[in-house]
Each structure stands twice: as structure tokens, then as C-alpha cells.
């Protein structure tokens, strides 16, 4: 990651989130976020994403064993 990249991240954070921090505080979080984003993007690739996230609790209820059903 170049110095320009970090400057860009700093400028983005200031503009979008209203937070102004030194470059040293930003590098690890920015890279960490990029790593997580890449894993997530790959995991989601090719999968239909039409269901609402809120359906998760319904999925938990539906997948409970019969003995634990309401």
C-alpha cells in the first residue's frame, strides 16, 4: 500500500465519516477491512441474495429440532 493510498483513505474517512485521524492509525484497519471485504465478496459470489437479512431468525426457528419446537 502506497503513501498515496493511505492519504486517500484518510481523506475518505474525513469526508464520509467526519473523522480525522493520522495515517498511522488508519493503515491496519483499512487493510483489515479490505481483507474482510474480499473474503465476503468471494463467499457471496454466484449466490442469489434476494432474501431479506431479517429472515435469519425465521431460519433458526424453522431449523430447530422437533422436540424443541413451539
Amino acid at each position: 500500500m502506497t503513501r498515496d493510498d493511505v492519504e486517500m483513505a484518510r481523506a475518505w474517512l474525513k469526508r464520509e465519516q467526519g473523522i480525522d485521524l493520522d495515517n498511522g492509525s488508519l493503515l491496519d484497519p483499512w487493510e483489515g477491512s479490505a481483507r474482510m471485504g474480499e473474503v465476503t465478496r468471494r463467499a457471496a459470489e454466484g449466490l442469489p441474495l434476494e432474501a431479506e437479512p431479517s429472515a435469519f431468525t425465521a431460519a433458526l426457528e424453522a431449523l430447530a429440532p422437533k422436540g424443541a419446537r413451539r
Binding site: 465476503t40 449466490l47 435469519f56 425465521a58
Partner: peptide, 8 residues
């Protein structure tokens, strides 16, 4: 949102 949507 992808991370949330993949959960179910």
C-alpha cells in the same frame, strides 16, 4: 449486506 444475507 452480503455477510448478513448469507447467514440463513
Amino acid at each position: 449486506l452480503e455477510a448478513l444475507n448469507l447467514r440463513g
